[in-house]
C-alpha cells in the first residue's frame, strides 16, 4: 500500500492511497464541514457542503469522494468556499419549513450547527413555504417532510445497513420527497423492521421517535459505527 503526501490548508498531510480528502483531513485534525456524508454508508456527494479547492483543477471537488493524490494542494476554507457554503445552507433553509423553535432536533441538529458554523443568521433568499406533509402512521416513529433536506442518509442507511430499503426518493427537482415503501404510509410498509437506524441517521428533526418533543431528539450515532465495524472488521465490542 502506498502513501501519498499532500497539503491541506498548507499543512503537510500523509494519507494512504485510496483515502478520500475528507478522511485524510480528519486524520490530520483538519475540519471539513459535511452534511449528507455519513460514515458507514456510501457517499452521495449531494449536499455540496464539503467542496474544496484543489490547485490545478478548475472545478470544486467534493472531499467525501475525491481520492488523495501525490502532491495535491488543497484548500478547504477559502473566501469563495465560505460564501458558497453559506448560500448552500441558505438555499436549504429557504427550501423547506424549518421552524427550529418547535423542532424535536433543536439544539441537536446538524443543519442548525452548519448554519452557525457558516455564519448564517438569516436567509437572503425568500422562504418558499412549501406545502409538505407529516406521516405518523408508524407506531414508533414519524417523518415530518417539512424538515427534510433530502440528504438521503435514511435511504442509504436503510438499504445498505439494515437491508430493508424502506425509503427512496420520489419525483424530481423541487418536488422531490422521501417516499416509504411503494408510496405507502410508513406504518403500512411490511419491509420496515422498526430498527430505528433512520432516526439515528437523520441529521435534522425530520425522522423522529414518537413521544419526543421540542429539543428532545437524541441520536445513537455510535450504533451505526458499531454495526459497520462489527460487520467489516468483526469487532463485536462497543
Amino acid at each position: 500500500m502506498s502513501v501519498k503526501t499532500l497539503t491541506i490548508n498548507n499543512i503537510p498531510v500523509a494519507a494512504e492511497q485510496g483515502k478520500t480528502i475528507l478522511e485524510a483531513a480528519k486524520e490530520s485534525g483538519i475540519h471539513i464541514p459535511t452534511l449528507c456524508y455519513l460514515e458507514g454508508v456510501s457517499p452521495a456527494a449531494a449536499c455540496r457542503v464539503c467542496l474544496v479547492e484543489i490547485e490545478g483543477s478548475n472545478k470544486l471537488q467534493p472531499a467525501c469522494v475525491t481520492q488523495v493524490a501525490e502532491g495535491m494542494v488543497i484548500y478547504t476554507d477559502t473566501p469563495k468556499l465560505q460564501q458558497y457554503r453559506r448560500m448552500d445552507i441558505e438555499l436549504l433553509f429557504a427550501e423547506g419549513n424549518h421552524v427550529c423553535a418547535v423542532c424535536v432536533a433543536n439544539g441537536n441538529c446538524e443543519l442548525q450547527d452548519l448554519a452557525v458554523e457558516v455564519g448564517m443568521d438569516h436567509s437572503r433568499f425568500p422562504y418558499r413555504f412549501p406545502d409538505r406533509s407529516v406521516d405518523v402512521s408508524h407506531p414508533q416513529f414519524g417523518i415530518d417532510h417539512n424538515r427534510c433536506i433530502l440528504c438521503t442518509r435514511c435511504v442509504r442507511v436503510c438499504d445498505e445497513i439494515e437491508g430493508a430499503h424502506v425509503w427512496d426518493v420520489a419525483n424530481r427537482g423541487e418536488n422531490c420527497y422521501i417516499v416509504s415503501g411503494l408510496h405507502q404510509p410508513w406504518g403500512e410498509v411490511d419491509a420496515c423492521t422498526s430498527c430505528g437506524k433512520c432516526v439515528d441517521a437523520c441529521p435534522t428533526g425530520s425522522i423522529f421517535r414518537k413521544g419526543t418533543t421540542t429539543d428532545e431528539k437524541s441520536r445513537d450515532r455510535a450504533k451505526l459505527e458499531f454495526l459497520v465495524n462489527a460487520r467489516e472488521k468483526h469487532e463485536w465490542t462497543r
Binding site: A46, R48, L92, F125, L150, G173, E174, N175, C176
Partner: peptide, 21 residues
C-alpha cells in the same frame, strides 16, 4: 432546468428555483 433537475444536489434543486423566482 428547474423542472428537469433530478433533485439530488442542493445548488441545482433549490438554486434553480430561486433563480427562476
Amino acid at each position: 432546468c428547474r423542472g428537469e433537475s433530478c433533485g439530488k444536489c442542493v445548488p441545482c434543486r433549490a438554486g434553480t428555483v430561486q433563480l427562476y423566482a
